[in-house]
Nucleic acid binder design. Structure first.
Lengths: 252, 252
DNA sequence: CTCCGGTTACTGGTCCGACCAGTGGACTAG
DNA sequence: CTAGTCCACTGGTCGGACCAGTAACCGGAG
C-alpha cells in the first residue's frame, strides 16, 4: 500500500455557496460593514452572473445565519446586520430542544463562565466600575417590587457588567446566550413559584456578597460565591441524576 | 398615555419560513427522525402547495442549519441528519471571525473552559477513564517524535477526553472551537519555533502533572495546573497590554 | 443460476420570464 | 413649504425548462 498525496473526499460545490462565501469573506475582511446595504437581488444577479434563484438561495442562507435581512420593497437592498448572538442562541435552543444539551450542562456552563468572569473582574475592576456594580444592585432591589421580568432584566445587567469588566467579550457573549436558553427553559417555573419574591431577595443578597468579595479583591472567594449562588438559584430544576456535575463546581 | 395591550412589531411571514417551521416541528416532535428521508422537492411542492423555488429556499435554510442534506440525483430525497453541534460550532466561528476577538480573549476563554473541565473531571472520572487519560499521555509522548501536527492532534485528543469526562458537551464544543481558532492564529509560530520540541516536551510534562492531580482527586490543583500550563504555552504570543487578563486566571 | 453492463426514470442545481404587493423617493398640487 | 399622489423598483412567489448526475431496474453474457 503506497501512501500518495492526501486525497480528501470532494463534494459538489453549489453556486449559491460560493456567493455566501464571498459575502462572508467580505464581511470578515471589513469590506462589508454592518449597516451597509447589499445591491438588490437583480443587481447581484448581474454581478455574480447567476440566476436570481441562485442569488435568492444565497440570501436565504445568509439571512438564516443572521448576516443580512431582506425587506420587500426596500429600494436600498438587503441590509448587513450587526452581529448578534441570536443565531448562536437559535442553534443552542435547537440543541437543547432535542435533548442534545441537558439543563445541567447549560447551568454548569453558566456557573463556570460567570465564576471565571467574576474572578477576573475582581482583579481588573476600576473603582468606577465597582460603583457601577453597586448601582446595579440598587436597580435589582427596586426591580423586585415590580415583577419577575424586571428583576430578570436587572440581573442580566449585572452579569453583563461583570462580563464587560472581565475584558473578555467571548465570556460576555457566551454568558448572554446560555442565560437566554436557560431562562427560556425554566423562567416560567421560577416566576410562577409561590416563593418567587423570596427567591429574588435571596439572589439579591448573594449578588451583594459577590460584590463585597470583589471589593476586597478576593477573586477566588467571589467566584465561589457566584457559583454557589447560581447553584442555589437554578440547581433545584436539575434532575438528581445530573446534580453531581454541578456539585463538582461549587466545592473547592 | 394609555398602556393598552402589549403590541409587538410584526413582520411578514414568508412561505418558506412556514415550511422550515413545519419541518423543524416535525423533527422536534419525533415525527421525523434522523436518517429518514424527506420527499423529493417536486413532491414537497405538491404537499405544501407552493412553488419549487419556495421549497428550495426552505431546504437551503434547513441545510444551512444542519438539519437536512440534499444530494443531486438521490432518488430517496433529502436526508434528515443526526443532530450535531456542527451548526453551533459554525456560528461560534462566525462570532470569532466577525467580532474581532483578541488572542488574549480566546486564550483566556480556553484557560477557563479547560480548567473548569479538568476540575469537574477530576471528581467525576472513573478508574477506566483515568486509564484512558494515561494512554493519551503515552500517545502524546510518541507524537512528539513525529511532528508538531501529530502532537497537536494528540493534545486535542487529551482535551476532548477531559471534556467528555466532565460530562458537559457544551464545554467540549466550546473548547474545540476556540482551540481551532487559536491554533489557526499561532500554530505556525509554534511549529516553526526553534525550540518546538522542547515546548512539546514541557507541555507533555505539564499534562502529566495534571493527570496526577486528577488521580488524587484534587480538582482545584488540577485546574490551576492546567491554566498555568496553557499560560506558559500560549501566553508568550499575547501582547503585553493584554497579559493582565490572563494573569488574573493563573493566580488564586 | 449468478453476475455484469447499459438503459431509464427520477433527482437536485440552475436558469429564465412573469406577476404581485409592497416600499420609499420624487414629483406635484395646494 | 407642506401634503398628497405617483411610480420606479424592491423582494416574494410562481411555473416551466434544461442539464448532469444517481440508482434502481432489466436483460444478456457467463
Amino acid at each position: 500500500m503506497t501512501t500518495g498525496p492526501k486525497f480528501s473526499p470532494v463534494q459538489p460545490v453549489r453556486a449559491y455557496e460560493r456567493i455566501v462565501e464571498q459575502v462572508e469573506d467580505a464581511l470578515a475582511s471589513g469590506d462589508l460593514v454592518p449597516g451597509q446595504r447589499l445591491p438588490s437581488e437583480r443587481e447581484l444577479v448581474a454581478q455574480f452572473a447567476v440566476s436570481r434563484s441562485t442569488v435568492r438561495e444565497a440570501l436565504r442562507v445568509l439571512e438564516s445565519n443572521g448576516v443580512v435581512r431582506s425587506r420587500p420593497g426596500d429600494p436600498n437592498g438587503p441590509e448587513i446586520l450587526p452581529f448578534s448572538q441570536s443565531a448562536l442562541r437559535k442553534q443552542m435552543v435547537r440543541l437543547a430542544r432535542v435533548d442534545e444539551l441537558t439543563l445541567s450542562e447549560l447551568i454548569g456552563f453558566r456557573m463556570i463562565m460567570d465564576g471565571a468572569a467574576i474572578q477576573v473582574a475582581s482583579r481588573l475592576r476600576t473603582p468606577e466600575e465597582l460603583d457601577e456594580l453597586e448601582e446595579t444592585l440598587v436597580a435589582m432591589r427596586a426591580a423586585i417590587d415590580v415583577d419577575f421580568d424586571a428583576f430578570s432584566q436587572a440581573d442580566l445587567a449585572f452579569h453583563e457588567l461583570i462580563a464587560r469588566i472581565s475584558r473578555n467579550s467571548l465570556i460576555q457573549t457566551c454568558n448572554e446566550v446560555v442565560r437566554g436558553v436557560v431562562l427560556s427553559l425554566i423562567s416560567d417555573k421560577i416566576s410562577h413559584a409561590p416563593n418567587s419574591r423570596a427567591l429574588m431577595l435571596e439572589s439579591l443578597h448573594h449578588h451583594a456578597d459577590v460584590v463585597d468579595a470583589i471589593r476586597t479583591g478576593n477573586g477566588h472567594a467571589a467566584a465561589r460565591l457566584a457559583r454557589q449562588n447560581m447553584y442555589d438559584y437554578y440547581g433545584g430544576y436539575v434532575p438528581d441524576s445530573e446534580q453531581e456535575t454541578l456539585r463538582a463546581l461549587v466545592e473547592d
